[in-house]
Structures are given as structure tokens and as C-alpha cells.
């Protein structure tokens, strides 16, 4: 497997794939963090407020990152017509896994970078007190899990279809539905079942008491309960998408 991972790095030369990922992460950070942090409520509750606000931005930018990276990596093989050569040298499943590991590691690294920048940003803005690390680690784990599901799904689609428009439209439509689902609290099943909605389904910080007239006067932040079924669905999706994608890829005739 090590030699296949080395090959993946060789193939990425001159493709600026990681740079593209960093650009998407940077765009996500600008979108997430740009705002007015002067209010007393925000200064006092800044750390938790970020946890409340971020899943929406995550639901836009991380799916885009998954879509772009998986597609760029798979397209390298499609354009090179390399499967017919590679399949005579190595097991198909291992080729699938090596590419998945490369792309998934990079995408999860971008989640980690994003998360680290949040902590640094909070310190620079001087939010009150120390960051609640337990909650931030939970947020990191939830974001990473939702991103992993999406990456595995997009990887399968990108590897199976030569035409990357299939991957692009699946990702774009899915992202749209995922973001839309966060504005429909009356339909929890939508975000719990659609992989792009997991960022919302895993959100555990809630804002209560906010009104358009009084704004933050009576507002407070509280940890919400997350339906345990979501964790099970995520685990099932990870196994299902991985197993199905790999099975179909291994069955593929070139």
C-alpha cells in the first residue's frame, strides 16, 4: 500500500490539488469568520457562538472540498486512461483504497486546519475565557465524520463515472439540499438521512431566546441533544458507501 500511496503523490505533481484544497478552506474560513464581534453577548459567548454558527458554513464548503478533491484525483486516472494499465499491475481494490486514503487524508487535514484557525481566531478576537476544548473536540469529530461520509461517497462516484459532471452535479445538488435542510427544523429526517445534511444533524449548540425585536437581550446558548440514530446512520453510510463503491469499481470492465 505504501508504494501505491507514493504513486498517488507522484501523480499529484503539477496538479496543485492540495493548494486548491487550501484555497477552498481559506474561502470557508473567510465566509465563516467575517462579521461584527463587538457586541457584549458575542464577546462573552464567542466560543460557543462560533459552534452554533459554523455548521452552516461547513455544510457549504466541506462538501465542495470533497467534490473538488475526489473529482480531481479520479479525473487524473480517467484522462490518462490508466486503469487498463494499472489493473494489470495491482489489485483493483488496492488502487481504489490508495486513492481514497490520499484524498480523505488531505480533506480531513483541511478540517483540522480549519478547526485550528478557529481557535487562533477566537484568541485574536479575545473571546471571553478559554475555549471549551471538550466541545471543540466534539465539534471537530462531528465535522470530520460528516466530511468523511461525503468524501467516501464522492470518491466512489468520481472513480466510477468517467464524466466528472456526474460527480459535480451530485455534489452540487446534494450541497444545496443539505444547506436547505438546515432551514427546515420541522423536517429533521431530511438532514438526518441526506449525507450533506449531517453538518446540521450533528449540530449540538443551540441559540435560544433570540428575537428580531430584542435580539440578544434574553438570548442564551445551550447544548442540544443530538438524536443517537444520526451516529448510527453515519456509521452505516460510511460502511455502505465504501463497500458499494469498491465493489462496483472492482467489477468495472475497462
Amino acid at each position: 500500500m505504501i508504494k501505491l500511496l507514493r504513486c498517488e503523490l507522484l501523480k499529484m505533481r503539477h496538479k496543485y490539488i492540495f493548494l486548491t484544497l487550501l484555497a477552498i478552506t481559506a474561502a470557508g474560513l473567510v465566509f465563516s469568520l467575517y462579521g461584527d464581534y463587538s457586541g457584549e453577548f458575542i464577546q462573552k459567548n464567542g466560543w460557543c457562538m462560533m459552534l452554533y454558527q459554523l455548521p452552516l458554513a461547513n455544510g457549504i464548503f466541506f462538501p465542495i472540498a470533497c467534490l473538488v478533491i475526489s473529482s480531481r484525483l479520479a479525473d487524473t486516472e480517467h484522462k490518462a486512461s490508466s486503469y487498463k494499465q494499472l489493473f494489470t499491475l495491482e489489485k483493483r481494490g488496492r488502487i481504489y483504497d490508495a486513492k481514497l486514503m490520499t484524498g480523505l487524508s488531505m480533506t480531513l487535514l483541511s478540517v483540522l486546519i480549519y478547526w485550528s484557525v478557529l481557535l487562533v481566531f477566537g484568541k485574536i478576537i479575545r473571546f471571553y475565557g478559554e475555549p471549551p476544548m471538550e466541545l471543540y473536540l466534539r465539534y471537530l469529530a462531528c465535522t470530520a465524520a460528516a466530511t468523511a461520509v461525503l468524501y467516501i461517497l464522492q470518491h466512489g462516484i468520481s472513480m466510477l463515472f468517467k464524466n466528472q459532471a456526474v460527480s459535480f452535479f451530485t455534489g452540487a445538488i446534494g450541497t444545496f439540499i443539505g444547506v436547505f435542510s438546515m432551514f427546515l427544523p420541522q423536517l429533521p429526517l431530511l438532514r438526518q438521512l441526506i449525507p450533506w445534511g449531517f453538518y446540521g444533524a450533528l449540530q449540538f449548540m443551540g441559540l435560544y431566546g433570540w428575537t428580531s425585536e430584542e435580539r440578544y437581550a434574553n438570548a442564551y446558548l445551550k447544548i442540544m441533544s443530538v438524536d443517537p440514530a444520526v451516529y448510527v446512520i453515519i456509521a452505516v453510510y460510511i460502511i455502505l458507501f465504501y463497500a458499494l463503491g469498491k465493489y462496483l469499481f472492482c467489477r468495472k470492465e475497462t
Binding site: 508504494k3 501505491l4 507514493r6 503539477h14 496538479k15 484522462k79 490508466s82 494499472l86
Partner: peptide, 20 residues
């Protein structure tokens, strides 16, 4: 048709197969 990664040189292409 031959398989080749267009963004790489001939040597870099062969390095991939040589590694495998």
C-alpha cells in the same frame, strides 16, 4: 490507446509504473 498522465514527463510517468 497508450495510458499516460499528460501533466507529467515521460520519466515521471514511468516512475509511477516502476514504483508499482
Amino acid at each position: 490507446s497508450p495510458s499516460y498522465y499528460g501533466h507529467l514527463t515521460a520519466r515521471e510517468n514511468l516512475k509511477i509504473y516502476q514504483t508499482i
